[in-house]
C-alpha cells in the first residue's frame, strides 16, 4: 500500500507545478509594488511648471494626503486619465502633478507644451512640479507615465498606481486608499 502511494508522487508534483504555472499566466508583470512603498517621498528641489522662479521641495506634500501624478504631454494615456483626475479633484482630493520629461528645444518650449496640455485637457493639479530631465521621476522609480503615488500627511508614500487610473479605479481603489490614510 505504501509503495502504491509512492506512485502518486509524480502526479502530485505535476499538479503543484501546474497550479503554480497557471497562476503565473494571469500575473501582470508590469504591476509590481513600488520600491518606495512606506518610504518618504524623495527629496527634490524643482521649479513649478507655471512659474520658473518658484522652487518647491518635498515639504509641499506635508500636511495633507496628496495624490502625486506623473504625466507628460507626450504621453497619450495621460490624456485618457485626465477626466478621472479632474473627477478626483472635484471630490476634494488634493492632486500635485509632475510634468515628466517634457520634450522641446528649450525650457520655454518645454513649459509651453506642458501648459498647452493642461489647457486642452484640464488642470486638476494644485501645483505642477516641472521635471524635464526626469530626475524626480528617476528617484521615484518611474519607468513610464502615467504613474500615481499616494502620499500621506507625513510625506510617506502609501500607494502606487502604475498605468492609468480608470473610472472604476477611482471608486474602487483610489478613493478608499485616500480615506484610509486621511
Amino acid at each position: 500500500m505504501k509503495r502504491r502511494l509512492l506512485l502518486l508522487l509524480p502526479l502530485v508534483a505535476f499538479l503543484v507545478l501546474a497550479v503554480f504555472l497557471y497562476r503565473g499566466l494571469s500575473i501582470n508583470p508590469s504591476e509590481r509594488e513600488s520600491a518606495l512603498m512606506a518610504r518618504e517621498f524623495p527629496a527634490f528641489s524643482l521649479s513649478t511648471l507655471q512659474d520658473p522662479q518658484r522652487k518647491v521641495d518635498a515639504s509641499l506634500l506635508e500636511g495633507q494626503v496628496t495624490l502625486v501624478n506623473v504625466w507628460g504631454s507626450w504621453c497619450p494615456t495621460c490624456r485618457q486619465e485626465m477626466p478621472q483626475l479632474l473627477d478626483l479633484a472635484e471630490r476634494g482630493v488634493r492632486l500635485v502633478g509632475v510634468d515628466y520629461k517634457e520634450q522641446g528645444a528649450d525650457d520655454v518650449a518645454q513649459r509651453a507644451r506642458g501648459t498647452a496640455f493642461l489647457q486642452q485637457f484640464g488642470n486638476p493639479f494644485e501645483v505642477n512640479i516641472f521635471d524635464p530631465d526626469g530626475s524626480l521621476g528617476f528617484d521615484l522609480g518611474v519607468y513610464g507615465a502615467p504613474e500615481t503615488f499616494l502620499v500621506d500627511a507625513e510625506g510617506v508614500i502609501r500607494y502606487h498606481h502604475t498605468g492609468y487610473i480608470t473610472a472604476e479605479d477611482v471608486d474602487q481603489i483610489i478613493l478608499p486608499e485616500v480615506e484610509k490614510w486621511q
Binding site: 509590481r32 520600491a35 521615484l140 522609480g141
Partner: peptide, 8 residues
Amino acid sequence: MVNRFGDY
C-alpha cells in the same frame, strides 16, 4: 538602482 526600482 534597487532603492528606486526594486529587486526587479
